[in-house]
C-alpha cells in the first residue's frame, strides 16, 4: 500500500442549475482521507454533505475541481466508467437499506459481483464470507421481509463489503434503526475499521459521529470544521446498554 491518500479532492465544486437559478451546492472543497480512517461527515441539510458524498461515491461528477480515489482520477468519466469504478472501489450503505425485496440475503449480497462478472461459485463463496463477517451466515436464505431492520442493514453492509471496496460509504446508516441496533451497526463499522477498512459515514446525528476518529463538518457548501477525536467504543456502550436494560427488566 502506498502512502497517497485514498480520497483526495482539490477545489471540488458542484453547481446545480435549477431553472434560471444556480445553486452552488459545493464550493471548492479540498480534502484528503487516508486509508484506514473512520470519518464522519456532518452538517445540516443543504450544507453540501450529500453532494460531497455523491461526488466521492462516484455517483456524480464535479462541475469544477479534481477528485482522485485510490489513485484514479474521477473527472470526465462516462456513466458506465463511473459505474465500474463504484463497483470496484466503493461499497454503499443506505439509510433505507435498499435491498431487493424478493431476493434472499445471499442473492442481495451477490448483486455487486454480478456486475463485476464473477462466476457463480465465486459469487456464492464470497457472499457467504461477507455474510459471515456481519454475523448473518445463518440467515442467508432469508428474504428482507423475514429479517429485522438491523439484520437488513447488516445484509446491506455485507453487500457493500463483498467486492472488497477501498471505501465503505454509509449515508445515515442508523437513521431507520433504534438505539440498540444503531450501536450494533456502529460497532460493526468500528470493527471493520480496525481491520483496515476505510469508512466514511454521512450523518446529522452527533451521537453517530462520536464513533468516528475524524469529524468533517459542512456548512453552505464548504468545510467549516475538520477535527480528529478519540472515538467512543460502540461495543463498550452496547455492553453498558445491555446491563442497563437487564437492570430495568429486573
Amino acid at each position: 500500500m502506498d502512502d497517497a491518500p485514498l480520497i483526495e479532492t482539490r477545489e471540488l465544486a458542484k453547481t446545480y442549475v435549477m431553472g434560471d437559478q444556480r445553486v452552488r451546492a459545493l464550493r471548492r472543497v479540498t480534502l484528503s482521507i487516508a486509508r484506514g480512517e473512520f470519518v464522519a461527515v456532518m452538517g445540516p441539510s443543504g450544507s453540501g454533505k450529500s453532494t460531497f458524498m455523491n461526488l466521492i461515491g462516484c455517483l456524480d461528477t464535479p462541475t469544477k475541481g479534481e477528485y482522485r480515489i485510490d489513485g484514479e482520477s474521477v473527472g470526465g468519466l462516462s456513466p458506465d466508467r463511473l459505474a465500474e469504478l463504484r463497483n470496484r472501489k466503493i461499497g454503499f450503505v443506505f439509510q433505507s437499506f435498499n435491498l431487493l425485496p424478493r431476493a434472499t440475503a445471499l442473492a442481495n449480497v451477490s448483486l455487486p459481483m454480478l456486475y463485476a462478472g464473477a462466476d457463480r461459485a465465486t459469487r456464492a463463496a464470497r457472499a457467504q464470507r461477507a455474510l459471515d463477517v456481519v454475523g448473518l451466515s445463518a440467515r442467508m436464505d432469508h428474504r428482507p421481509s423475514q429479517l429485522s431492520g438491523g439484520q437488513q442493514q447488516r445484509v446491506a453492509i455485507a453487500r457493500a463489503l463483498v467486492n472488497a471496496p477501498a471505501l465503505l460509504l454509509a449515508d445515515e446508516p442508523t437513521g431507520a434503526l433504534d438505539t440498540r441496533t444503531s450501536l450494533e451497526i456502529m460497532a460493526l463499522f468500528q470493527s471493520l475499521n480496525k481491520e483496515g477498512q476505510t469508512v466514511v459515514v454521512v450523518t446529522h446525528e452527533p451521537d453517530v459521529a462520536e464513533f468516528a476518529g475524524r469529524v468533517v463538518r459542512f456548512r453552505d457548501g464548504k468545510v467549516v470544521d475538520d477535527r480528529r477525536q478519540t472515538p467512543r467504543d460502540a461495543a463498550t456502550q452496547l455492553a453498558a446498554l445491555g446491563a442497563e436494560q437487564a437492570e430495568e427488566a429486573a
Binding site: 461515491g57 459505474a83 456486475y115
Partner: peptide, 16 residues
Amino acid sequence: TREIGLRLAVGARRRD
C-alpha cells in the same frame, strides 16, 4: 426506480 438506482450504485452499467 429505487431498485434501478441501487443496481446503478453497486456498479450496473447502462446496458446492464
